[in-house]
Design a protein around this nucleic acid. Structure first.
Lengths: 342, 342
DNA sequence: CTGAAAGCGCTAACAA
DNA sequence: TTGTTAGCGCTTTCAG
């Protein structure tokens, strides 16, 4: 394995000169630069990033902590993040953690182990105490979720997300606009300020705004999973108790897909018997039958904007900010317009 | 930021002693070990991996190079790989590359930059020349594909995959067993030894074995993409030319889903008018309607076995091997049994 | 513009 | 069992 020394020797210069051309410093003569470049090219030399990172104290690496089971929704965002990071000359180190794991802890460890310049948290909770958050001492941004319950000072964290509550409210309103009155909800956990909870609140708000009663028996919860199979399982079990609703709001596309299978297996037609709406806008939901009506998150922008915000903080041109991105309703064929009758 | 020196000072020992307890060496007195551990705990010290990796020359990192657009099929495998690596005490560094990019080159760069111990290639081509492959000097394994065209010496590479040709043949046979005679195929590229090509060969073989003619006008190709949207687009365009088939074999689940939408939009019922079968067994295809009949790849095993093989080579207990894993047919509802006539 | 030399934080001989 | 010390490959003063 070639080192900078070998290159220096081969080019007949000192290691510092090689280092200078490696780092595109201006203070090198054209002649030296050319010679060094030639040798590097010739020998197929690639600098040892580990050593560079060590001496620079900080690396050019950004950590990405992804929480929860594999949600197809994240895939696009992850790609957007990686591309954006790559374009800016940073490396991405990804770490997946379990639904119940502590992402701040994981971030703190990773930050030190890998000497990260910054961290992007994808899909987490947001109810941290400031002290907990303080364990992460590099810039970070929450992607696709935010601290909407307000336990944190807005100057203390960054986030790029949609407004989950509004999104849910909008989605449910689509159902109501189509004449639905008995609207069930398929959610995950309800007991903290998770995305599930926020979207559930949006559901409640939409009902309230239209003077529709909130019927607890129509709120189905997977407990803490967004997984398609759990959505299916819970929906199937719930249908044995009640199917007294004409529409279903699922807090995530993936969950909607699971629920739709359960509905069909229960003999219900979509949207004939039950209309379905969800939030996220994952690719595949545009290809299922009936095409899922959903409120799309701007996946690409969530990723690129997160990177932009993070790099802004890292490179000292930019401060903490909470960015809220707009959603767009994608009309599918999973909502049936009900005939008006009171 | 605390360093090993600080810990040594605080614990009243030398850095070597700290290093020894960090690396769980046996030659440390219980007394020292206890004291050092206490200080580490107390100070929340986390060793600098960069420095460790530098001095160890080689890191504890394994590279994962994922080629091609985000295929949901990969997600599960990636997770399986990460979990297995984590369990064995290795870190994963992932890098996505474009469909047309050179994964061996990417691997070679990454290997040097990150001082990788090994590399797993996910979803690549397999028609490299031995000289190209030689650029990667750490152990590596091809995951989910193999060098079936045989340009490589079996002692020169490792792979964990299914037999793509057999899988395709089996899938198409399911169609034939159900009485189908006019079977279209939706494929990607055909001009190299890609997975698409192998599966296409399986399709051809199944037809040949049953004396069915290969009708080129029923072979639809996306060119080089496995993306759902391209499958949809190509299928929709093809249907304008011909719909003279009773069954469709798609080389990937995701492509099947795209095709199914096109078929429906063309007014065809699945499986009433057209039966569909595919290969991969991604999660969501179990939830679409009709449930997709498909030949499942053992995703979890593909990942864990790849890691096992790789670590075997890295840790010196194990040599190159080509592992072929079995597929299992998952009967959905997308195949219609044709009445026997002729 | 260039080179010598001092580390970055850690591991691994080698001595003690 | 412990400490001393020489680097790992690179960047970065600081002189020249």
């Amino acid at each position: 394995m070639l080192t900078i020394k070998d290159i220096a020797r081969l080019a007949g210069v000192s290691v510092s000169t090689v280092s200078r051309v490696l780092n595109e410093r201006p203070d090198v003569s054209e002649e030296s630069r050319r010679r060094v470049r030639a040798v590097i090219e010739e020998e197929n030399y690639i600098p040892n990033n580990t050593a560079r990172d060590l001496v620079r104290i900080r690396s050019e690496a950004i950590g990405l902590i992804v929480r929860g089971e594999q949600n197809p929704f994240y895939t696009d965002i992850i790609h957007a993040i990686e591309r954006a990071l790559d374009r800016a000359g940073y490396t991405m180190v990804m770490r997946q953690i379990g639904f119940a794991d502590d992402e701040i802890g994981a971030g703190a460890v990773m930050q030190r182990e890998k000497r990260l310049r910054g961290i992007i948290f994808l899909g987490g909770r947001s109810n941290y105490a400031p002290e907990e958050l303080a364990r992460v001492t590099v810039p970070f941004v929450f992607c696709a979720y935010t601290n909407s319950c307000g336990t944190l000072d807005p100057t203390a964290y960054s986030s790029v997300s949609i407004c989950d509550e509004d999104a849910a409210c909008t989605a449910v309103n689509e159902l109501i606009r189509s004449g639905h009155r008995c609207i069930a909800a398929l959610i995950a956990d309800t007991d903290d300020s998770s995305i599930s909870q926020l979207r559930y609140q949006g559901y409640c708000r939409a009902l309230a705004e239209h003077d529709l009663p909130l019927r607890p028996e129509l709120v189905f919860s997977t407990g803490d999973s967004f997984a398609i199979e759990d959505a299916y399982r819970v929906m199937a079990a719930s249908l044995k108790r009640t199917d007294d609703f004409t529409a279903l709001f699922a807090i995530a596309d993936d969950m909607a897909l699971g629920a739709m299978r359960a509905l069909r297996e229960h003999g219900l037609d979509i949207p004939g018997d039950v209309s379905v709406v969800a939030i996220d806008g994952i690719t595949v939901s545009e290809y299922v039958h009936p095409m899922l009506s959903t409120l799309c998150q701007p996946k690409e922008e969530l990723g690129t904007k997160s990177v932009e915000l993070l790099l802004g903080m890292i490179e000292g041109r930019g401060a903490h900010a909470q960015v809220t991105l707009p959603t767009t309703f994608r009309a599918g064929a999973s909502i049936r317009k009900l005939a008006k009758r009171s």
